[in-house]
Write a protein that binds this DNA or RNA. Sequence first.
DNA 1: GGTGTATACATAGTATAACGAGGTATGAGG
DNA 2: CCTCATACCTCGTTATACTATGTATACACC
Lengths: 106, 106
Amino acid sequence: MRREELKGHLDLILLAALEGEPAHGYGIIRAIDELTGGTFDLAEGTIYPALQRLEVAGHLASAWETVGGRRRRVYRLTTPGQRELARRRQQWGQFALAMTRLVETP
Amino acid sequence: MRREELKGHLDLILLAALEGEPAHGYGIIRAIDELTGGTFDLAEGTIYPALQRLEVAGHLASAWETVGGRRRRVYRLTTPGQRELARRRQQWGQFALAMTRLVETP
DNA sequence: GGTGTATACATAGTATAACGAGGTATGAGG
DNA sequence: CCTCATACCTCGTTATACTATGTATACACC
């Protein structure tokens, strides 16, 4: 899938991915790939900078973990991040509704 | 609405706007604004270059018209443009479905 | 012990496209 | 005349997803 479409929606995806429980970048990539049946096969160069942006913005917080001898940076949703997630969810709903109105075959 | 979200979706919007009958840029802007209840209030600097891109790509064709003493550049959907519209509609469906799966509150 | 694969992180540079700001011109209404 | 709506255009900015590349560990296989 052409990735230009993702612009402006990636943050919502990542915040939503971390809603339930903390996770690390590589794991998020695979989870998204699996959940969407391969529709979103995100590059590492897409995810890692995006997670960093969200942490700088205060929406995520990270901590190092070691599992099976490998280091992971595990991200969790902060309280401001939860608010941001709600805000973006609503925004997505509005966007999708508008798109549907414009694009639906009458 | 933040416009970053539009990236990659504007072409679909414009092709769909021209599906029924030809229209001109300024009119398309107002039609989209009205249909979406103000959610998409697109700037002229967004629309005009986009229409030109689509014409260069062969998906639209344009002709000058004069209505009430004012010149309009009227765009119509070409046959390749209709195929492109169908393709992008399907793509949007896939995108929206994937987003819904990732973002829906469980 | 070497090779390949999956896991896991990171960054530097590029490309693209929507947008902001500015410019031009006509017609109608007061 | 002045303002407003109509109608077009273009240049420069900016945000951000992506490509390419590099690093390192664990594990299986021969």
